[in-house]
Structures are given as C-alpha cells and as structure tokens.
C-alpha cells in the first residue's frame, strides 16, 4: 500500500513538472531538453534551506521555485534575444542543463555527486495532490488570460503573432520563467519526498521524460501531459514483474501513442466529461464507416 501511494505521489510531482513544460512547449511551441535542471535547482535550493537553515517547508519550496525562475531568465534572456530557432534553443538549454549538473557535482554545499541525504520528509500523497491541484489551477488561469493567448499565437505562427503586435521575446521569456517555476516546485517536493537528492537525478534522462510526457500527452493541453506523466511513472512500475521487457514496452507505448494519436493523447483538448463523450461519438462514427 505504501508502495502504491509512493508511486502516485511521484506521479503528482512529475505531473507538476509536466504542467510547466506544457506551458512552454505545448502552449508556446518552444522545445526544451533541459527542464530537469530547473527541477534540480528547485530541489537543491529547497532542500538546503530546510536542511541547513530550518526554513519552513512551503517557503523553502517556493524559494526553490523562484530560484529556478531567476536562473531560467538568466539563460533565457541571451538565448531568446538571439532569436535562436526553437530546435537550437532546445540544444542550448540542454547544454545549460549539463552545466547545472556539473556545478551541483562540484559545489561544497551540495556535497557533490554523492548527493544530499537526510532531508526531512514533508511531501506525502495529500501534499503532492494539493500542490498538483494548485499548480494546475495556476496554469489554467495563465492559459486562459491574455498572456496565454499571446503564447498560443506564438506557437501557431510567430510571424503572424508579431503582426498582431505580440512581443515574441517577452512572450517566450514569460513562458520559460513560468515553466521553470513549475519545475522548481516539482523539484522541491521531490527532494522532500525522497529525502535524498543527487545531481544525476536531474539530467537529460529526466528532461526527456518530461518532453515525452508533454508530446505524448498532447500539444495545447494541460491535462494531457499530467496524465501522460503519470502513465510514464506508473507503467514502468507495474512492469517491474517483467523486468527484462520494461524498457521495450515503455518504448512501444510511446510509439503506439504517436501512431494512433499523433496529436498526443489529448492534443488541443482538456480532459473533461464533454471531451470523453465526444470521443465516444467519434469512435462510433469510425466503426459505422468501417
């Protein structure tokens, strides 16, 4: 039982990080292969604050998220100002992510590659669920506001967006900052759930997991990536019985999603009763045609 709760808790945490990347990739159309670094910054900042300074948990998590946001702006201003095309930006931020890992491995205070043990456990399933709910609500408000409209316009057609008077640089930077904040929150929660963090947790592997969740979950959707993030945590756990085939099935799952739902599980839609009913209708129509 404790094990199942643990998997769900991790799913919620990963869901928060996926929400952040959904804002940046799914709604603003910018790719990133380095968002794990922002999780790492959030995790280490929050953990160091509770561990050494005895800062209250919630404040530490928020401080970690803010630290991730500030760092994201530091990397975002020069790269986005240089008008790097989306794929080049993704590579630039991947290099940045590696740099963050190396720094974490070499700092005294982070205790290097051995990692930071002995963090107090404050995160449990109710805390993670509550955090997910709050962050999802914030993401929804952002997307439904004029800031979200601008982001969507940039994703759909940057040239046309500019001709609508939208400042591409500021729009992308705001989305990057927002997504880093979400990653930071996820990192802070993760540190206080696992009670131990080390730099290797926040590498390309984790960044790829996040981008896979956003793409498989669906561009232009918030609930889709959360769902996909949870699936990508839960399925490998269920497959532990078939240890040898785990990664094969994981890869197959990704391929199947992209083949049968190229726009992602929930591309351009949100999980709602209305959507599920629509899905049923569509499927019926398909069968009558066939």
């Amino acid at each position: 039982m404790g094990y199942a709760l643990g998997v769900l808790t991790l799913s919620c945490i990963q869901g928060i990080a996926a929400l952040g990347l959904a804002i940046f990739t799914g709604f603003t159309g910018q790719f990133s292969l380095g968002h794990a670094a922002f999780m790492g910054i959030g995790a280490y900042t929050a953990a160091l604050l509770t561990y050494f300074a005895g800062v209250p948990f919630v404040i530490a998590v928020v401080a970690g998220a803010l630290a991730a946001t500030v760092i994201s702006l530091v990397i975002g201003v020069p790269t986005l100002k240089a008008k790097l095309r989306s794929d080049y930006f993704a590579i630039a931020i991947m290099g940045f992510g590696e740099a963050v890992r190396v720094i974490l491995e070499n700092l005294q205070i982070t205790q290097g590659a051995r990692g930071l043990p002995g963090i107090t456990r404050y995160t449990n399933l109710p805390v993670a669920l509550l955090a997910l709910a709050i962050m999802a609500w914030l993401a929804r408000n952002f997307i439904l506001s004029k800031y979200g409209w601008r982001a969507i316009a940039v994703r759909e057609d940057p040239v046309a967006a500019e001709m609508m008077g939208i400042d591409l640089f500021r729009t992308k930077l705001l989305s990057l900052g927002a997504s880093a904040f979400f990653s930071g929150v996820a990192g802070g929660l993760l540190a206080h759930y696992l009670m131990f963090i080390q730099p290797v947790m926040f590498t390309n592997v984790q960044s790829t997991q996040l981008i896979a969740a956003v793409v498989a979950g669906g561009i232009g959707s918030l609930t889709g990536p959360v769902l996909a993030a949870a699936i990508f945590i839960i399925i490998p756990e269920l497959l532990r019985v078939a240890n040898m085939w785990r990664l094969v099935i994981y890869g197959l799952m990704l391929i199947l999603i992209m083949v049968f739902r190229p726009a992602g599980l929930m591309g351009y839609h949100e999980l709602s009763l209305e959507w599920l009913r629509g899905l049923g209708r569509r499927n019926r129509r398909l069968t009558t045609n066939a």
Partner: peptide
Amino acid sequence: FQNIRLFNN
C-alpha cells in the same frame, strides 16, 4: 499576408 497566415488550429 499574400499567403494567408491565420492561426489555423
């Protein structure tokens, strides 16, 4: 635009 640029989706 000459080649219409709407937000098609």
